[in-house]
Amino acid sequence: MKFTRRDFLKTALSGTIASVLPLGGLRILKPGEVRAEIEKTNVRWGFLVDTYKCVGCGFCVKACKLENEVPYDAPVTRTWIERYVILKDGRVFADTPMGGRDGFVSLKVRETEIKPADIAKAFFVPKLCNQCEKPPCVQVCPVGATYQRADGVVLVDRSWCIGCGYCIMACPYGVRFFHPVYRTAEKCTFCIHRLVKGMKTACVQACPFGARQVGNLKDLNDPITKVILNERVAVLKDEYGTKPQVYYLGLDKNVR
């Protein structure tokens, strides 16, 4: 019989687990749970948005809608781009027509025509689910249809959601909506179906400028973890105590 290194590790691992379990003492974990526990210690998906790089083309929104089958012409979307225009007199204009799906091609913000000479600064901010460490949306679901995976991603079980909308009310970021076809709560999933296959999310892949990046926050060698650790990054609305896990480079105080 050959005893490979893999076999050795396997045996050692199950041996360790087996010896720890009786001490932990309360219940025997199923194999799936053990795997989940191990994964838990290895992966925490996070996101990095570099607002300096975003040009507001909306490719990510398009890609997301197609990838995740959110009706293309519905005004709801899992991810969106906001445009902020701050004038020299201090006034702030912001908009997100169709979630920025078709890009920003007009100098009009809603009804107001903006003169380029008046602009002090202008920029774009991509938004998506923050996969909060303490997600209030999960807390309030009365039937447990929305839940958090061990790797941090918050998902909705379409076969279980009763469509009460409590989670939509509870999310401070306005991320959730009812899926127009399934009529269940819908949100950005970090394209978890792609991540688990080793691919990038649809929006990351579609962004021609590298403004969006996804990675494993538990891996210190991951490019986005390095940036988050070494650069000055910010998160959205941290006053709600949700511990959001989408980090922004170049976030402005005017961003809502």
């Binding site: 709801v76 908009d95 979630g99 938004k127 939509i168 009310m169 991320v175 959730r176 909506f177």
Partner: peptide, 10 residues
């Protein structure tokens, strides 16, 4: 200025 997904849900 409102987020795209905001509606009167309740």
């Amino acid at each position: 200025f409102t987020y795209p997904n905001e509606f009167i849900y309740w």
